[in-house]
Simulated assay, not measured.
Amino acid sequence: MSLAYAVTDSRIMITRCLRRSRRDPEAFFTALMLPIMLMLLFVYVFGGELKDSGSYVDYVVPGLIVLCAGFGAGTTAVALAADLAGGIVDRFRSMPIRASSILLGQVAASLTRNLLATALVIGVGLGIGWRPTTSVWRWVGAVAMIVLFILALSWLAAAVGLLAGGPEAANSFTFVLMFLPYVSTAFVPTRTMPAALRGFAENQPFTPIIETMRALWMGHTSTGASLGHEAWIAGVWGVGILALSWAGAAWLFRRRFAA
């Protein structure tokens, strides 16, 4: 019975968070439309100068997906911080529900929103000329990498939301996550960057994740490394961030609401 109660509590919290997203259309549509507008901007305004080889849209789609996931995770941090500041979490904890379902609802809603935004980015990319040359199994691998990355960022956002003093402080997290993809291989190869910046871009978590998706979809990376090399590094980053963020968010939640 306890498992059934846990599933029910989690389902209720997930439904609440999704309905909350629907009732905040400004933030919801911004999260959906921002990566699409950036794609059109980069492809049609900057693409002629920025393309490395072939069509620039083939290069830029993976970077826009991680940018979209970063913005969506930032939204999750703000939503959780707003719940904490508004006192609704205290009311939930006074009810006979599992405390873990409160965080799980935010993370599951974040995953749903980000997967929807990712599907839109992929759909628009296909509509304007993105042509992945890959197999079904490589598509499965790319989707698995996206899900792992979104889950890792969502749990990281939950930890930030618990740490932040309010929605305004949590909102700054959005800008950090949106800035990091620009200093990666999302939009240009690292060899075009100054040496000091190149070292950071090549060794931050976004780059191997982007390169893994690029290799799975297009058959090559912009760094010259193999798919196996990039996928191994991306997996370590993704699992490491997920594990640390999940443990940190759970510890912060217990510490903040300890009796």
Rank of each mutant, 00 (worst) to 15 (best):
T76N: 12
V78P: 08
A79M: 12
L80D: 07
L80F: 05
G86D: 07
G87Q: 07
I88A: 10
V89R: 14
D90M: 07
S94C: 01
P96K: 04
P96W: 07
R98I: 03
A99T: 14
A99V: 14
S101P: 10
I102N: 02
L104A: 15
L104N: 09
Q106M: 13
Q106W: 12
V107I: 13
A108Y: 15
A109R: 02
S110Y: 12
T112D: 04
R113Y: 06
A119Y: 03
L120F: 00
I122C: 06
I122Q: 01
I122D: 01
G123E: 04
L126P: 03
I128R: 04
W130V: 11
R131Q: 14
R131H: 12
R131W: 04
R131V: 13
P132D: 08
T134F: 05
W137K: 00
R138S: 02
W139I: 05
V140K: 04
A144K: 10
F149H: 14
A152D: 13
L153W: 00
V160I: 14
L162E: 06
L163K: 15
G166S: 06
G166D: 08
E168G: 01
E168D: 06
A170Q: 11
F173V: 12
V176E: 01
L177K: 08
L177C: 07
Y182V: 14
Y182D: 05
S184Y: 11
T185P: 01
A186T: 00
P189N: 15
T192L: 13
P194I: 10
G199Y: 14
E202W: 07
E202S: 08
N203P: 04
P205M: 07
F206S: 08
I210Y: 02
E211D: 02
M218Y: 10
H220Y: 12
S222M: 13
